[in-house]
């Protein structure tokens, strides 16, 4: 699960993929995860951080994580 190298993210949660020209918006938590991914955090580290900071059951987040990765993949933002 690695973000493509040149993906541009902004504080407002904007994502721009210079390779395709697509722009995206993200909600706060999605932007936060992207930030961790960009700075090279591993899947385990990121999940741990989120579970520490947010009021969510591990099971629930596990499901949402998979769905989020699917969205990133659909959006062509992951380096597979």
């Amino acid at each position: 699960m690695k973000l493509k190298a040149n993906i541009a993210t902004s504080e407002n949660g904007f994502i721009f993929n210079p390779a395709t020209g697509d722009s995206f918006t993200s909600n706060a938590i999605a932007a936060e995860i992207l930030g961790y991914m960009k700075s090279g955090g591993s899947e385990e580290e990121i999940k741990k951080k989120i579970l520490e900071n947010y009021d969510v059951e591990p099971n629930q987040f596990e499901r949402d994580w998979d769905d989020y990765m699917l969205q990133l993949k659909e959006a062509n933002l992951l380096d597979l």
Partner: peptide, 15 residues
């Protein structure tokens, strides 16, 4: 106090 959770999601603009 933990933050309120919402599932992470992105949306393509102008679709």
């Amino acid at each position: 106090m933990k933050q309120k959770y919402e599932r992470p999601t992105i949306r393509k603009m102008n679709t």
